[in-house]
């Protein structure tokens, strides 16, 4: 009995807080998608499916598709850079490893807006990157570096890459590198050993890295807002516009539901796969 009281006392504060400020608001988003807006930017009385129908009429699918596409490309680039980087950090000597790890983590601590801003000035029509590219003959003075999809993907990669490196490093650190030697010994070329032995060995880290990049990328708003153009808007921008420009909260809610579904899809896919894959192994391990 005393134990129950103790558990309750320790659980209630955080539990109730998250219930009130996380679960209820999230559910509310679903509810408000079916309420009409009032002319003062609030919520009107009654129920309606007009918002949802409106959503289908709008060319939102272009933006939804772009959101998925840009996030997927960002995730792929992050993975392509994070895999060798995580591998390199894990293989460095212990003394150097800590320094390298630190250098990967520090950007995480610096202000997100400042990092985006730094790129905005770098890619500026009169910024240094442009000047160097023009000097090298790789770009004409008219080539826009900013306010397009490429800039959005570049800055998203810059922002999310540290998050992708960390889980891959964590998995690589536990990986037994003698397996790579064994593969080489059996005739595998370096890249084959990497693909056939290292990659399956750090699978869990790769899955985490994908989710940790893909999910916030899908919800991107500031990056397309600051370095993207009108043709690189993502779902997040539309949600923000409905809130700050037209003040149509039900519409913003409906769009958020679409985003929630987009985020939930990869998350559930991973959970489902893992459950399916790991169950038989666990049973066999207990048996043997």
């Amino acid at each position: 009995m005393k134990k129950k009281i103790q558990e309750a006392a320790l659980t209630i504060p955080s539990f109730v807080w998250l219930l009130l400020f996380f679960l209820v608001p999230t559910l509310l988003v679903f509810v408000l998608a079916f309420r009409p807006p009032d002319p003062y930017g609030g919520i009107g009385p009654g129920w309606t499916t007009a918002t949802i129908r409106d959503l289908a009429r709008h060319p939102y699918w272009v933006i939804a598709w772009r959101t998925l596409w840009a996030s997927a490309v960002t995730t792929a680039i992050c993975l392509a850079l994070a895999l060798p980087s995580g591998y390199a950090v894990a293989r460095a000597s212990p003394r150097r490893r800590n320094l390298l790890l630190m250098m990967v983590i520090v950007p995480f601590w610096t202000s997100f807006l400042i990092r985006v801003f730094a790129w905005r000035s770098l890619l500026h029509p009169e910024g240094p990157v442009k000047k160097i590219l023009v000097l090298l003959g790789l770009a004409s003075p008219q080539t826009p570096l900013l306010y397009n999809n490429a800039a959005v993907i570049l800055v998203m990669t810059y922002t999310f890459l540290p998050f992708a490196i960390l889980p891959i490093y964590a998995a690589a650190e536990k990986f037994d590198f003698r397996l790579v030697e064994a593969a080489r010994d059996l005739g595998a070329r370096p890249l084959q050993a990497f693909r056939k032995v290292f990659l399956p060995g750090v699978r869990q880290g790769v899955v985490t890295a994908v989710l940790i990049v893909l999910i916030p990328a899908l919800g991107s708003y500031v990056i397309p807002d600051l370095v993207g153009g009108p043709s690189s808007e993502m779902l997040g921008n539309k949600i923000a516009q409905r809130v700050f420009v037209d003040r149509n909260l039900p519409h913003a809610s409906a769009l958020s539901v679409v985003l929630i579904l987009a985020v939930l899809a990869p998350l559930l896919a991973v959970l489902f796969r893992q459950r399916k894959k790991e169950k038989p192994e666990i049973i066999l391990e207990e048996g043997g």
Partner: peptide
């Protein structure tokens, strides 16, 4: 505690914009 853990963990995988909009809805409502 299993439910509690889900409660603690989920906000970490929710994009910021969704948390922002849902809190805004809650405060407005």
């Amino acid at each position: 505690q299993r439910l509690h853990y889900t409660f603690i963990y989920t906000p970490l995988v929710v994009p910021e914009i969704l948390m922002g909009i849902s809190l805004l809805m809650a405060f407005v409502s």
